[in-house]
Simulated scan of single mutants.
Amino acid sequence: MSASDTPSGKPVCHRIRPANTYSGKQGFDYFEGIARETTGAAAICMHLLTIPPGRRARAHLHESHETAVYTISGEVVMWWGERLEHRMDTRAGDLVYIPAGMPHLPANLSGAEAVAVIARTDPHEQESVVLRPDLEGLVPELAGIEAG
C-alpha cells in the first residue's frame, strides 16, 4: 500500500501543510511537500523553498525531469546554460521553466528572504539531481558566496 492508497487500495487526496524540512543536494533546505514519499505521487513533486539573503545553491541539473518555479516573494537570480552563461533575474510573481538536463545555479543576492514554490516531474525530486562542481567558479558575481 502506498501513501496515496487506503486499506481498500483506492487512491485518496492529501493535504500537506509544509512544516518539516529536508536538505537537498543543491545546498538548500526545502519544506516537505507533495512527493511519492509523502502522498504516493506517481509523476510530480511540489515543495516550498525559502532562500535566505546572500545564499546560493550548488551548480546542478535535474537529469530526467522538468522544473517549474513560482516566486512568491523576494528576488532570485539564476544562471543557466551549459557553462552558466545566461542570467535570469526573477522577482515575486514570476514563473520560471527549467528543462530537464539544464545546468543552473540560483542565488538570492538581495538583502531580503525569497520564497518560491517548486514543482518537478519526478515524484522523488532528489533522485535525478546531478551536482556540477565543474561549473562552480564560472559566475564571477558569486565569488565568496558559499552554497547552502
Score class of each variant (00 low, 15 high):
88 M>T: 13
27 G>Y: 11
97 Y>I: 07
42 A>Q: 13
23 S>F: 09
13 C>A: 12
57 A>V: 05
94 D>Q: 03
18 P>F: 12
20 N>Q: 14
104 H>G: 05
116 A>K: 13
72 I>P: 08
35 A>L: 10
5 D>P: 01
55 R>A: 14
142 L>E: 05
123 P>D: 08
69 V>G: 10
25 K>M: 11
98 I>N: 04
19 A>F: 11
129 V>L: 02
81 G>V: 03
32 E>W: 03
49 L>E: 01
7 P>D: 10
54 G>R: 02
72 I>V: 08
125 E>W: 15
115 V>D: 03
31 F>M: 09
44 I>K: 00
40 G>W: 06
89 D>R: 15
124 H>F: 12
22 Y>V: 15
54 G>D: 02
5 D>K: 14
92 A>W: 10
21 T>S: 04
88 M>L: 15
52 P>Y: 03
84 L>R: 02
101 G>K: 03
141 E>A: 15
34 I>F: 12
126 Q>I: 13
68 A>Q: 00
122 D>W: 00
69 V>T: 09
5 D>R: 09
86 H>N: 15
108 N>H: 10
95 L>S: 08
86 H>E: 11
78 M>Y: 05
55 R>D: 05
63 E>K: 12
146 E>W: 02
90 T>S: 15
47 H>D: 06
84 L>M: 01
23 S>P: 02
4 S>V: 07
70 Y>I: 05
130 V>I: 13
42 A>Y: 07
119 A>N: 00
88 M>N: 12
91 R>K: 13
2 S>P: 03
9 G>Q: 01
24 G>Y: 04
9 G>F: 14
131 L>T: 03
127 E>A: 13
90 T>W: 04
48 L>V: 14
126 Q>S: 10
